[in-house]
Design a binder for these strands. Structure first.
Lengths: 191, 191
DNA sequence: CATCGTAACTTGTCATTGACAAGATATGGG
DNA sequence: CCCATATCTTGTCAATGACAAGTTACGATG
């Protein structure tokens, strides 16, 4: 212990969990001002470290966002999986994920902000894709092999989520997104 | 004429059409590196003017992007209207607009980058919204008053367009987006 | 045609940022 | 106990957005 413990201002040389602290700060910052306005130096300030500390863990800004996106794909896969065997509920899970993890969601679909070929990212994306395929197969086995069916289900859920998150449905902003999404999603496949 | 005409390097004090030149340069720059990487100084260089010239016409960066988004909503309304009375073809028009005017499309749905309450933008958005409502009413008059139906159609087309533009369908990147979208869009409303 | 108000553009400046280089400090395995 | 290495700091540079103040051209008006 070189640092004298004078209460909350204590700042040991080693943060201990800086990487996660920075990711958490990024989620907050993005929720406030969007991914484009994200500043590594601001994250460093929020975490109480020097301005160059983030670079050590992520390389550059795109590296940090790539890690966030990777987390996001796994959160998304989990949300879709835990929705059960009903395709509509899987879609509701997709929408719920987007709204509850808005920062992750926004970053995931802005490839210009990240390292799109990062192996970890590609793998996580594949896991999420598998979860979507599984949801379709569980609910509509007869269409599981149709590419159009999967694209339609994905597009519908993704479109609703994107429009909601981007504030394109201002009239509905007060309501529960899952409740609004459910009857919308039911229109697909004549179900 | 204070500027001696020495060929292509001529640079009169007044550009003549700087505003449109900057918007066109922005479309190109965004197509190359995304809206987040856009630099007003880079646009000024492309147009051959000083680094502070853009501010005169747009106030700030968000102002320029707001104008681009406004253009985009009108292009989108036109694309949907000119698709005819079939809802599926309206959706194809929506997708085609997104792909052919990718820069506009990306900016339109990133409210953090623009002045979201700009009167011109709000009005253009309303015009586009009216075009979407009209497409639904022309094709499925019995559903014209259902909010869920409109949201479903919009979400499906928007989701497909967004996923395509964001490179989330890497396998299909070589094919004609309209041709891929058409059978996908047909799944809605049991049609 | 002379003048003047104003729009269009320039030059200069400042704080902020991302990236990089080089140095300081702690940690844990041997 | 010691050192190789991961972690973090300090210092610096070029680029950027925004703003202030000055310059030039246009066009309406008399």
């Amino acid at each position: 212990m070189t640092s004298y413990d004078d209460g909350m201002t204590e700042r040991p040389y080693h943060h201990g969990d800086l990487k996660n602290a920075l990711l958490a700060a990024a989620v907050e910052a993005i929720a406030q001002h969007g991914p484009a306005a994200l500043s590594l130096r601001d994250l460093a300030r929020r975490a109480g470290v020097s301005h160059a500390a983030p670079a050590h863990h992520f390389g550059d800004k795109a590296g940090l966002l790539t890690e966030l996106a990777t987390e996001g794909y796994d959160l998304m896969a989990e949300a879709v999986r835990s929705a059960g065997p009903d395709l509509v509920e899987a879609g509701v899970g997709y929408v719920r994920f987007a709204v509850e993890h808005r920062s992750h969601f926004e970053v995931m679909f802005q490839p210009a902000l990240l390292h799109p070929d990062d192996p970890g990212l590609v793998a996580a994306r594949a896991r999420a894709d598998a979860a979507l395929s599984a949801a379709l197969a569980a609910s509509r086995p007869e269409r599981a092999e149709q590419r159009e069916a999967k694209l339609a289900a994905w597009s519908l859920a993704h479109g609703f989520a994107a429009l909601w998150v981007n504030g394109a449905m201002p009239d509905l902003v007060d309501r529960d997104p899952a409740g609004v999404a459910r009857p919308v999603l039911r229109n697909l496949f004549g179900g």
